[in-house]
Simulated assay, not measured.
Amino acid sequence: MSAVIRVGTRGSALALAQCEQAARELGRAAGLEYELVTVTTQGDTSKANLASLGGTGVFATALREALIAGDIDVVVHSLKDLPTAAYPGLVIAATPKRADARDVLVARDGLTLEALPAGSRIGTGSPRRIAELKAVRPDLEVVADFRGNIDTRIGRVASGDVDAVILAAAGVDRLDRAEAVTERFALSDWPTAPGQGALAIEVREGEASDLARSAEFARALAKGLDKVNHSTTRATVTAERAVLAGLEAGCAAPVATSAIVDDGMLFLTASVYATDGSTKLTANHAAVLDSQSAADLLAAAAEVSQRAVDELLSLGAKELA
């Protein structure tokens, strides 16, 4: 088959690196060639704070519009950047196996978070990370208006502009910058954003429709998507994002989640923070898996996330998030 999968991505180094990885896997699974198509988003061109732009969803809109228009066949997103609400006409068709979901510290002189002197300047634009920082190290100065690609942010530590930055492990690893990391935070102590470390491959709903280039291409693409989908990852990120949706919090809200599948059970921890770090509400829930089938995994995800949302709301999470 001569058709090529046109894979939409942002043009940043990280987006291109993770898209290349996902596209290569998808092309191999589908038996098709692929090409990357870069799309410029509002989040790439604006220098404004992400919260003022409406959260990290600003990175997804232009890509989704290009997909709806038929200019590309699939989009690879960082799942934590996607709003939880469904986008009309599109569906997440696959979630490849998740990378490291943790946050990492990049600090001067090889320091850990605990070892940073009082008054040290630490950069992050994430409300969730800011709240977690203020909860454990209120004596640090948080530089909140902090944007730029990973190399730029690491460079601000090297230049002495800040003493440390907090980044997603998956992004640092995908760009082969692991040597800059001075500490990796345990998820049990420092839970991260819903879906962090995972990718989402989005397609038009009903890909065999008139928007598909041929029925044969649509069948090959569907086969490839099914092969690259990792059912355990799909279930855990579904549980995490369902908490965000249930709390009606945006993807930049101070909400942290961590879900895992272990020993025949799906475990979920969800926390909501006051923006100043003064209050933290946490819910821990688990569901027994009848099997490891995709359907049972997703059913367990729905069950534990709803119980977590109910508990957090009863504790007053609405007033925090």
Rank of each mutant, 00 (worst) to 15 (best):
E114A: 15
G110C: 02
D139R: 09
L167F: 05
N149T: 10
A158P: 00
G119H: 06
D145E: 08
A170Q: 07
P138R: 01
G119F: 10
A168G: 14
V172Q: 03
I150P: 02
G171C: 00
A170K: 09
D161Q: 15
S120H: 11
P96S: 09
D109F: 13
G155N: 00
A118V: 04
A115L: 11
V104R: 05
G125H: 04
A99W: 08
L90G: 05
E132T: 11
G89L: 05
R137L: 05
R147Y: 12
I130M: 11
L116R: 02
L167Q: 07
A93M: 05
K97Y: 07
E114N: 10
G119C: 11
D109K: 15
I166E: 09
T124M: 08
V104F: 06
L111M: 15
V104Q: 01
R128H: 05
A135V: 01
P96R: 01
P88T: 13
V136A: 11
K134V: 00
A158N: 07
A93I: 04
R108F: 07
T124A: 04
R102F: 07
P88R: 07
R147D: 13
V172D: 10
D151N: 12
A131H: 04
E141T: 14
A135F: 03
D161P: 02
G148D: 07
A170T: 06
N149K: 04
P117S: 12
S120Q: 09
L105D: 11
R121Y: 09
L167E: 15
F146A: 01
K134Q: 09
D103N: 15
L105M: 10
R98N: 03
S159Q: 14
D161R: 14
A86F: 00
G123M: 01
A94Q: 02
K134A: 00
A168I: 05
E132I: 03
D173N: 14
E114K: 13
A115W: 05
E141P: 00
L140P: 06
I150W: 01
V104N: 02
V143E: 08
A170P: 04
A169T: 08
A86Y: 00
A94H: 03
D173H: 14
V104E: 04
R102P: 07
A99R: 14
D173G: 12
D109Q: 15
V104K: 07
A135D: 02
A118Q: 13
L116I: 07
G89F: 07
D103P: 03
D139P: 06
V172C: 12
L90A: 06
D100Q: 04
S126V: 00
I150T: 14
L167C: 05
V106G: 08
D151I: 08
G160Q: 13
V172G: 06
I130S: 04
V157Y: 12
L113W: 10
L105G: 13
Y87E: 14
R137A: 02
A99C: 10
I154Y: 02
P127Q: 03
A164E: 09
L111F: 09
G110E: 06
G125F: 04
P96Q: 02
A164I: 11
R98G: 12
R128W: 02
I130Q: 15
R108I: 09
G148H: 03
I130G: 01
S159I: 12
P117T: 07
G110Q: 05
V162S: 09
A135L: 03
A118S: 15
K97H: 13
R128I: 04
A101P: 13
A158Q: 13
A86I: 00
R121C: 03
A107D: 10
R128K: 13
